[in-house]
Design a protein around this nucleic acid. Structure first.
Length: 569
DNA sequence: GCCGTTTTCGGCCCGACTGTTTTCAGTCG
């Protein structure tokens, strides 16, 4: 039995229980069980007693055994019979959870977006207890955009899918080389599908393996050059696999990485030289087909430097070749200025995070746990902050080759004040100010809050300045041109939060910040060591905005950084 | 449903927010 299927089954049961309005703790028990399995590195066969795993008890173990023995879960089947399929996507409507949907279903027979809409239009919904006219109105409004929602999927969601597929492709011995392509490779915020280029001499064997090992909802095409499927994930994802010969790999990768406009521009350029580009190679004036070992060689064939996928967008990049060298790349990053530890809501200790930074070859970093206001995140009081500082300085004594700074991610409170007094802030090496609450205040109020932070002499940086979550929420809608001007005026850093959930600032605002010479810090906001990896996404995203590396604070040397953070003291 | 124990039942993160209510349930992060 495939462990993935077990995990998915437990998660599906949780979802359906939720829709029945079940006890939320029971629902989360199934999710926890799924999570426990996911976190355990062993395969199902290697786990002797599954109930020994924290989070798996009698009930969930029974589901798992049922699944292993019979190949299916009777509990899931029962639930699927009891809960209409059309209700599942409705859980995504903001304001509708399991209980409300359960009520809509049992009282009004709502079982799909269509029937929900009809019930709203007939003003049936507002008659239910717990519902009112406002709720009904809100549901109707949300339903308008409902269909469009899943057409494009956010990078943070696709990232997990890509990681899983990568792992699978790695395990197929007939595959010589592979890479993700398409807009995901270009680090787009949203993509409608995922493309993979696979080099192999045995396409039909690879095809069979793919069809066998992927968790597939629908097979769209299954030939020897292209396998196209819809994966059965939480949000179904279209994935195309292009199977090519090794010598075609570079041109295929380039072709399917796009963008369309970039390819058009490249083909124009080729035509001027009497050549023709296709996914299979470059046709020379004499009709012969030229192929390449790598994309670098491909570009060199046209006397071009390597153009990173991230900037292959409008075609205009071919006129900005001299700027390519100024773009930031991961190996120039020497610091991470925003991360959490077990002192607040992080998973690893100060020591563990610090050592992880050293291992990445960084020269310095800042520990920035949450401040006292954020009680759910176990935010630090001034007293705990002081204790933490001792731990940080002890770390520095033990690691003279590296420098860890003591910082905070301090909340900008809803009432416009800061979570710490200046007395507290001035003891810290680095101060981040962030908004985590009352997103729906009017812009004017939000800007007053941000202004307080921007003009405070002890604040160094504003983190995730808009508060957006890609594809999920807009954030608190600050007046960004104004905030950027303040940052320039008061000498503050603005963050490019590298988490794929955020990528905040966005490209447009990064470009604006660059015009104003505002320094940008690309930070992971890591809550665990593994999340330090998102620095790669962050630097690639910075490339998309053509951000010049001298403006990027974490390419600065330790000396330069230290001079900058001390200048206000 | 799981866990842990002051060992078989109460807590599970918990507080803000919203839209209902008229003291609170459901949702959300």
């Amino acid at each position: 039995m495939n462990k993935k299927i077990v995990i998915k089954t437990l998660e599906k049961i949780a979802l359906l229980l939720e829709l029945q309005g079940e006890n939320p703790f029971k629902v989360s028990a199934f999710r926890k069980a799924a999570n426990a399995l996911e976190l355990d590195e062993r395969s199902l066969n290697e786990i002797e007693d599954i109930t020994k795993l924290k989070g798996i008890g009698k009930g969930t173990a029974a589901v798992i055994h049922d699944l292993i023995e019979t190949g299916q879960s009777s509990q899931l089947k029962e639930l699927e019979d009891a809960v209409p399929k059309g209700l599942i996507p409705l859980l995504k409507l903001p304001g509708l959870g399991g209980k409300k949907l359960a009520k809509l279903y049992s009282e009004l027979g709502v079982d799909s977006a269509e029937s929900l809409k009809a019930a709203c239009e007939a003003h049936q919904v507002q008659k239910l207890s717990g519902f009112g006219a406002k709720t009904e109105e809100k549901i109707m409004k949300e339903l308008e955009h409902f269909g469009e929602r899943s057409e494009r999927l956010p990078i943070w969601y696709l990232q997990q899918i890509v990681a899983e597929v990568n792992e699978l492709l790695n395990r197929i011995p007939e595959i010589q080389k592979f890479s993700v392509a398409g807009s995901f490779r270009r680090v787009s915020e949203m993509s409608k599908d995922i493309d993979f280029i696979v080099a192999t001499e045995q396409p039909s064997e690879v095809k069979d393996q793919l069809l066998k090992q992927l968790v597939i909802k629908e097979v769209v095409a299954a030939g020897d050059t292209k396998v196209s499927v819809v994966l059965d994930a939480e949000d179904p994802v279209s994935v195309d696999f292009r199977l090519v010969a090794l010598h075609e790999y570079a041109t295929a990768l380039h072709h399917f990485t796009g963008s369309k406009d970039h390819n058009v521009r490249m083909r124009q350029l080729a035509k001027e030289q009497g050549k023709k580009i296709s996914e299979y190679g470059v046709e020379q004036p004499d009709g012969s087909i030229h192929t390449f070992e790598s994309e670098e060689e491909f570009f060199a064939h046209f006397d071009l430097p390597f153009i990173p996928p991230t900037v292959r967008e409008s075609g205009k990049e071919l006129e900005r070749l001299d700027e390519l060298e100024e773009l930031v790349s991961l190996d120039q990053i020497v610091a991470d200025l925003h991360m959490h530890t077990t002192w607040s809501d992080g998973a690893h200790t100060v020591k563990e995070m610090g050592e992880a930074l050293i291992q990445r070859g960084y020269t310095h970093g800042v520990i920035t746990d949450h401040s006292q206001y954020l009680k759910v995140a176990n935010g630090l009081t001034p007293e705990r902050l002081q204790k933490q500082r001792i731990e940080i300085y002890e770390f520095n004594e033990a690691h003279p080759e590296f420098r860890l700074f003591a910082g905070t991610e301090m909340d900008i409170l809803p009432n416009g004040t800061l979570d710490f007094e200046n007395e507290v802030l001035k003891e810290l090496d680095f101060v981040i100010a962030s908004i985590h609450s009352s997103f729906s205040q009017p812009q004017e109020t939000i800007m007053e809050r941000l202004h307080t932070a921007a003009q405070n002499p002890y604040v160094h940086m504003i983190a995730h300045p808009t508060g957006r979550i890609i594809g999920q929420r807009e954030g608190y809608n600050p007046d960004m041109p104004q905030l950027i001007k303040w940052a320039a005026e008061f000498g503050k850093i603005l963050e490019l939060n590298a988490s794929p959930y955020r990528l905040d600032l966005c490209i447009e605002h990064l470009m604006m910040a660059m015009e104003w010479n505002v320094p940008i810090a690309i930070n992971t906001d890591a809550h665990a060591i593994e999340q330090l990896d998102v620095m790669e996404i962050g630097t690639k995203y910075a490339q998309k905005a053509w951000l010049k590396k001298e403006l990027i604070v974490n390419t600065w040397s330790l000396d330069k950084f230290e001079t900058f953070i001390k200048k206000n003291k």
